[in-house]
Structure formats: structure tokens, C-alpha cells
Amino acid sequence: MATKKTTTKKTTSRKSATAKKAPAKTTTKKKPAAKKKTANSGDKRMSALDAAAKVLGESKESLNAKTMIERMAAKGYWTSPGGKTPHATLYAAIIREIQTKGKESRFVKADRGQFTLNK
């Protein structure tokens, strides 16, 4: 009859095996005073949804998200901060606004992938 193999686990903690780190020094740095933004600030950037509403207001027909992104960039209202698919992000944001705000939304889905302003 064969003998049964048994293994024993060695319990070593990794903490004891590695060097102990010294506690992080806590230093308090004073943050510079935040600039107060006023309503008249010219440096405030427009959001993608606000820019899309402005582009749709200037347009006479319904537009898809890709066309809105192109027109927003051409007119200087909004530019993508480096994303690969800003049109997909804009589309999702418009759909989300329509779903959450309902009839009070700025946008209305006119056709498949096409949006207009809510009147």
C-alpha cells in the first residue's frame, strides 16, 4: 500500500521578508488661494453639450454627433481634449440628457442618430 503524501505549508509573512518602510512624513503645504470665477470671466470654457446646443441652434436641419463635433471645432466653440471618439461621447451625453430630463431636455431625437433642439 502506498503512503499518503502530506505537505506542510511554510507560513512566512511577506511583511517580515521585505524591508520595513518608514512612515511617510506628513507635511502640510498651503495651497494657493483659488481664483474666484465670476460670471464675466472670459476664460470659462464651454462644455460639449452647450456647444452642441449652440451649433444646433445655428443649424436649420437636424445633425448627427459627428457633424456637430466637426462644426464645434471649426467655429471654435469646443475642441476635443485628445479623445479618440468625441462623437461617441457627445452622442451618449445627449441621449443621457434626453433620458434624465425628458421633456425639459434641450435636445430631441429627430431620426436615427439625428438630433435637433427642443422647441
Rank of each mutant, 00 (worst) to 15 (best):
M1Q: 09
A2Y: 15
T6N: 12
T6S: 14
T6Y: 11
T7P: 03
T8P: 01
T8E: 15
T11G: 09
T12C: 05
T12Y: 09
K15L: 15
K15A: 10
K15R: 08
S16F: 09
A19K: 14
K20L: 10
A22T: 10
A22L: 13
A24T: 12
T27G: 01
T28C: 11
T28G: 11
K30G: 04
K31D: 11
K36T: 04
K37F: 15
T38R: 15
T38D: 15
G42C: 13
D43P: 02
R45G: 06
S47E: 12
S47D: 10
S47N: 10
A48Y: 04
D50C: 01
A53L: 01
A53Y: 02
V55E: 02
L56Y: 00
G57P: 00
S59N: 07
K60R: 14
S62E: 10
L63I: 00
I69R: 02
E70K: 08
R71E: 12
A73S: 13
K75T: 09
K75S: 12
G76D: 06
Y77H: 07
W78E: 01
P81R: 10
G82M: 02
G83E: 08
K84W: 07
T85F: 11
P86I: 00
H87M: 02
H87C: 05
A88F: 03
T89C: 10
L90P: 00
I95G: 03
E97G: 04
Q99R: 10
E104H: 12
E104M: 09
E104D: 15
S105K: 02
R106S: 06
F107S: 08
F107E: 04
A110N: 02
R112E: 12
Q114M: 14
F115S: 02
F115M: 05
F115E: 03
T116I: 05
N118P: 02
